[in-house]
Design a protein around this nucleic acid. Structure first.
Length: 572
DNA sequence: GCCGTTTTCGGCCCGACTGTTTTCAGTCG
């Protein structure tokens, strides 16, 4: 967890505790500050070194909160938070993770029954004590019993891949229902975030909540959380929450725009509407006299605030509105622009298919070129799976053979390892013989920012290296990866004609979108590849494409969208 | 506690759903 998250979590806890004590408005201020700190693009401790004034420049942070941030950074705790914890000694974040329990009810349960932990909450519910507390009843008690198991398995985010697959299945089911006009996924899935909290589905229909009986009969809806006329929520067997909105077809665009987000983007769009005397909500765009002037399509919503429609991937409040005003929105990369894959494994290392079968799979997908880049031996590569230097030279024959029987241009490469100091695990003499060289970090992934950055800079400076593979080595939900200074890495890579990879594997998505944007701003080149270990994984490229789109990538920024001749001239 | 081209004081997003309320509070997104 970054220091920003640590600070934000403490401010959120102050907010929750104050809210439990019935304090008005302050909680909102602390939450707002926490949100903005969580989304800062640099470490809050770095800002703090510039003084308290610099902290107060952060949106939502004033004198009092700035002082608390400094107190936390200097002493590791905040006195006011400690005092609040003393007067309400509850495990706030654990308890509020229970669906239907918020800070106020935590306060009520502590006052009435002295409940401090999930275990005590469970015990009280089992003993039938909850329903004796004013404001609670039998149903609240049963609800608590039902939801404690989910609260115990920490607030878990799901991989985009898992969520999108589920969403696609649900969309298929709804496409077959007569009363459904249109059905779209919204929220963070539509923006292609690497991980998502829940699945948001919008349904255009005139029959509203009567669809809930149909939904309840579908296999994914293991549990009904709520079911109303305008919205309904369910949980799958795997614990993924799926939220539905039932929308009148005539305002579907407004709802789609509203529920796609992000929050920051929508705040900016709403502000533009206010500046023009208009109001935007999920039901449309309205004039001062409440006349609806837009909403059937997303385009119509943007049009009345003088903006072009923009792709969901860039709706993050990272300058897209300003770019639109300046006429400088990117012409984003499309999946159909992709021509090749430059990071693929075979059974020479830890892949499960022969080179010929991987080439066949690439041919079927219409790829123009494919680089076979098996693992070299080295730190972080499972013993016995990496290819030794001599073996690598022998692999050439099989590559040449594959090239004779296909339209796909097969390049001979390697995925070498970057050791902790930035050295490359394959000898220069062997690298010379290859068409293309990827160098990736596989071990020593807990270095600090300086070490990690120097390490990559050293690897980039190696004359034979063409691509840095999964530059941070992160694995979603498993490890955060190297905390590199992406600006320095991007500058060095751009000046030395080394591409930085967007690894499309759903567990990696590395580099991620924001980093891609930095690379492109510094004139760098991105290589979107799959890291496929079996033929069907070549189809995962779309996750890399959409991740790159989150970084405003155009075809000209993406090595694997170029022709093979252009690629050869880049790597020469 | 924060913030300001309506304001340095007086506001703070809001709509939907559920449950326990007999008119609304708490939670959620």
């Amino acid at each position: 967890m970054s220091e920003n998250d640590a600070v934000a979590n403490r401010l959120d806890e102050i907010a929750d505790l104050l809210e439990a004590m019935d304090v008005d408005f302050k909680p909102r201020a602390y939450r707002r500050a926490a949100d903005h700190i969580r989304e800062l693009d640099r470490p809050v401790e770095q800002i703090a070194t510039e003084g308290q004034d610099a902290l107060e420049e952060i949106e939502g942070v004033g004198e009092a909160i700035a002082e608390k941030i400094i107190e936390y950074l200097e002493t590791g705790s905040i006195e006011e938070l400690e005092d609040l914890r003393e007067s309400l000694p509850v495990e706030m974040s654990a308890l509020t993770r229970v669906e239907g329990i918020g800070p106020k009810r935590v306060g009520m349960l502590y006052e009435a029954l002295g409940i401090r932990t999930l275990d005590e909450l469970a015990a009280a519910a089992e003993a039938g004590e909850i329903q004796t507390v004013p404001g609670f009843g039998e149903k609240s008690e049963q609800n608590i019993l039902d939801h404690i198991p989910f609260a115990r398995q920490a607030a878990k985010r799901h991989l985009l891949y898992v969520a999108r697959s589920l969403a696609d299945e649900i969309l298929d089911e709804f496409a077959a229902i007569d009363a459904v006009d249109r059905c779209e996924v919204a929220g963070s899935i539509r923006r292609w975030l690497p991980t998502i909290g829940d699945v948001d589905i919008l349904i255009a229909t005139d029959v509203g909540g009567s669809l809930t009986t149909t939904i309840e009969s579908l296999a994914f809806a293991a549990e009904t959380i709520e079911a109303g006329d305008r919205k309904a929520s369910y949980r799958t067997e795997e614990g993924i929450r799926v939220d539905f909105r039932f929308i009148e077809p005539s305002v579907f665009g407004a709802a789609l725009q509203y529920f796609t987000g992000s929050k920051h983007h929508n705040v900016q769009v709403r502000q533009r509407a206010i500046d023009r005397g208009l109001k935007v909500n999920e039901y449309g765009v309205f004039t001062g006299t409440d006349e609806r002037i837009a909403g059937e399509t997303e385009e119509s919503v943007y049009e009345v605030v003088d903006l072009p429609w923009m792709a969901p991937e860039i709706r993050e409040g990272r300058g897209e509105i300003e770019a639109a005003d300046a006429g400088a929105l990117p012409t984003l990369l499309e999946s159909s622009d992709m021509r090749g894959d430059l990071h693929v494994h075979s059974d020479w290392s830890d892949g499960s298919m022969s080179i010929a079968d991987m080439v066949d799979a690439a041919d079927t997908l219409g790829l123009e070129y494919l680089a076979i880049t098996d693992h070299a031996t080295g730190p972080g590569v499972v013993a016995g799976t990496g290819v030794e230097d001599a073996e690598l030279l022998r692999q050439r024959e099989e590559i040449d053979h594959a090239n004779q029987s296909t339209d796909v241009t097969v390049l001979h490469g390697v995925e070498a390892n970057i050791d902790a100091e930035g050295g490359i695990s394959v000898s220069d003499a062997v690298l010379e013989e290859l068409d293309i060289v990827i160098a990736s970090p596989h071990a020593a992934l807990t270095q600090d920012r300086e070490q990690a950055t120097e390490r990559l800079l050293h690897a980039i400076s190696h004359p034979q290296v063409n691509i840095i593979g999964h530059p941070t080595g992160r694995k979603l939900g498993q490890r955060p990866g190297l905390p590199i200074d992406i600006e320095r890495v991007a500058k060095a890579a751009a000046s030395q004609h080394v591409a930085l990879e967007v690894n499309s594997h759903p567990v990696r998505l590395d580099l991620e979108g924001e980093a891609v944007k930095t690379v492109i701003e510094h004139g760098g080149t991105i290589a979107i590849s799959t890291d496929a270990h079996v033929g069907h994984e070549l189809e995962l490229i779309r996750y890399g494409v959409h991740t790159a789109r989150r970084g405003w990538a155009e075809p000209s920024n993406v090595l694997t969208a170029w022709t093979v001749e252009e690629v050869r001239s880049f790597i020469d």
